[in-house]
Write a protein that binds this DNA or RNA. Structure first.
Lengths: 204, 204
DNA sequence: GTCTATATCCAGATAGAC
DNA sequence: GTCTATCTGGATATAGAC
């Protein structure tokens, strides 16, 4: 006889299996093209079992989107609080993101999940709301860093929010690019992108 | 009794209606989420009639993707042949693209169609092949312009192909951004993005 | 908790009347 | 050429045995 704790443990493991498999599917195919069957196969379990752990496909998706955006926000706040000049924050953040896009499959998938989701007008209602509410935050954090950098004299002129938009949309574009080509070589040097935001005298 | 010419005329009009409606649907929802029924409704015709003009959903999609990429290539070649310095080509191209993303709904949808399609690993086979074959061209054109500009001394250092990748992925990201927010204000100034590619002394 | 079998629904595609 | 009605397959979700 299994104890309650053991069952709880199984539940956590299973849900993690499902999340991992679902992230892979949603990130590469988008919400609609990814089928429950694919996810179940990738998670090594019967399709029916999925519904023992999640009430619906949408619920899995929402779980992933929330998690992805929370992690992104967290990383932004962490960087914003670093005790280094703003231009250095930008450089580090880009270097870090590029490195993880290249090396960390899970993170790359997370980027793609967000990109995929933002890309699609048609999403389940609750997922849509979650997304719209949470995605604003990284833009705000980045705008704050840009503004601070302009005051410090190291960041290029221009509306800080516009710079933030360019920052994230460029990242989105690159993550998608990388994810959809098996033949893609390494990403460009992150400093090329950083140059967009830095004043000349701050470039390496 | 209608003549052959009149029927031909009807055919062209109908196909144009379908393409216009399909572009809108595919661009905003992606290939799988866009339903034939949606397209038929948007084109003001019965679902069954669609199949009188196109053999399948995939055929419509391929038609659109080919058309979109051909137009993009054409625009690249046109710009590449202009008799102005390379940095000026970059500036003009970006200004032109930004303007059309903002003002020209059809062009914006075309950008999104390409972005959507590139974003999705799972596409009908022939569409996938068309896309992979044709999308390389804009990258090559742009890389050539970057290289030439470096020789002229106006474009930033770095692998020309990498710069081309940054160019197009940033555009893709922006087009998606703009297309998915009803609340989005105007796009950032195109010169902010141009700054990524220009040497300092060439910046405005 | 896990599986197989099945119900249900809906999208793409077809048939046939007008 | 255009429409309505229908077929068919495949996807989500459920039921029930183990």
């Amino acid at each position: 006889m299994r104890t309650v704790q053991q069952n709880q443990k199984i539940k956590e493991i299973r849900q993690e299996q499902i999340r991992r498999a679902a992230l892979k599917q949603f990130a590469s195919k988008g919400y609609y093209a990814a089928r429950i069957k694919d996810i179940a196969d990738a998670a090594d379990m019967a399709q029916g079992l999925m519904y023992h752990y999640y009430p619906s496909k949408e619920a899995i998706f929402i779980d992933l989107v929330e998690d992805a955006l929370d992690k992104l926000n967290e990383a932004c706040l962490y960087t914003a609080d670093l005790d280094v000049p703003s231009d250095e924050k930008i450089r580090r953040m880009l270097a870090e993101i590029f490195k993880t896009i290249e090396g960390n499959e899970r993170f790359r998938q997370t980027c793609c999940l967000i990109a995929q989701s933002e890309n699609s007008v048609l999403l389940p209602d609750q997922a849509r709301r979650t997304l719209e509410e949470k995605r604003k935050m990284p833009y705000r954090s980045m705008a704050r860093i840009m503004k601070q950098g302009q005051a410090e004299g190291s960041i290029a002129e221009g509306d800080p929010h516009d710079l933030a938009v360019l920052f994230w949309t460029s990242i989105n574009g690159l993550a998608i690019y990388r994810a959809t080509r098996s033949d893609a070589g390494p990403l460009p040097d992150s400093r090329l992108l950083a140059a967009m935001f830095l004043k000349h005298n701050e470039r390496i």
